[in-house]
Design a protein around this nucleic acid. Structure first.
Lengths: 153, 153
DNA sequence: GAAGAATACTTTATACCTCAACTGACTCGT
DNA sequence: ACGAGTCAGTTGAGGTATAAAGTATTCTTC
């Protein structure tokens, strides 16, 4: 067994371990946040994700902008926005400039709610991540970016 | 604005940024792996996750062990294992010691497949994570553990 | 300026996923 | 024993998810 091969498999194992731990950590946080959302706001996690994204873009977003921001499929967004509109939390408007597309934005009711929820949500995350120092967070962010920014579709 | 408050909100923002980046990174990797699984093995990601876990425990696992390992709900595992058994990749056996429970393990056919897939999967992850050095991986793993190991239910 | 390619989005089929309620089985105190 | 409480697992309803196919619209290119 050459040292080269040993090192290569050693890195590979560590990367796999990282991946499995990322998965568990994300699910752990998602479960925590999901439960709080349900208990305190009767809202699902995907619905909140969409609302939070819309809240960051008061000018409105297209369906494809949403699916790209959230890294989910196109058809997925259709259903979630449908429910949000039905609940009066979001609105859709046809675009004159491109009749295939439409703009989605938070409704007045949704905006008032999100003004509050965004603050509360940040506090939740702050609590869940309380053991993570600012330098650790910065370091981890940079690693997360490295993972995503690999050349690909 | 006191410096204390400034620092507190600064850390909170960085933690939120970390959370959002973790989410995107995980979805990115999941999408990549999901596509390869579908194209090369006609298997879904959750099914692979279950099979890989079972493959690591040749003696077999109970349903609740599986859901705990994968950080998913109990009812979820029921459906996935159902499909795996239907496809002949896994087997279930009633436990004499506890007639409420049952053991799940990979079938002979599933074992042969997983012997190969586990290696290929590690290569995929190694490729996707190729920009992550071993020290970075180790550091990130420790941060992921910190996130999970906070006291909670 | 019309055929063809590309785009934005929806729809359908299938699989996942949680939660809450439920069934059947174990445990334990009395 | 035996009933209250607990535990392993399933079920059903509702809500995500993806992939693939389909629709309408816009762009492109000659």
């Amino acid at each position: 067994m050459t040292p080269l091969r040993t090192n290569a498999t050693s890195v590979a194992k560590e990367r796999l371990r990282l991946w499995l731990n990322m998965l568990k950590a994300v699910r752990h946080v998602e479960n925590d946040v999901r439960e709080r959302l349900r208990a305190q706001y009767q809202m699902t996690l995907p619905q909140f994700d969409v609302m939070a994204t819309l809240h960051n873009h008061p000018e409105g977003l297209r369906m494809s902008d949403l699916s790209q921001q959230l890294v989910v499929s196109n058809g997925n967004v259709t259903g979630i926005v449908e429910r949000l509109v039905a609940d009066g939390l979001a609105e859709r408007e046809n675009l004159e400039s491109d009749r295939r597309a439409s703009l989605v934005r938070v409704s007045e009711k949704g905006n008032a709610l999100m003004d509050e929820m965004v603050v509360v949500h940040r506090e939740w995350i702050d609590e869940i991540f309380q053991d993570i120092s600012e330098p650790d967070a910065a370091r981890a962010i940079s690693i997360m970016l490295d993972i995503r920014q690999r050349r690909c579709a």
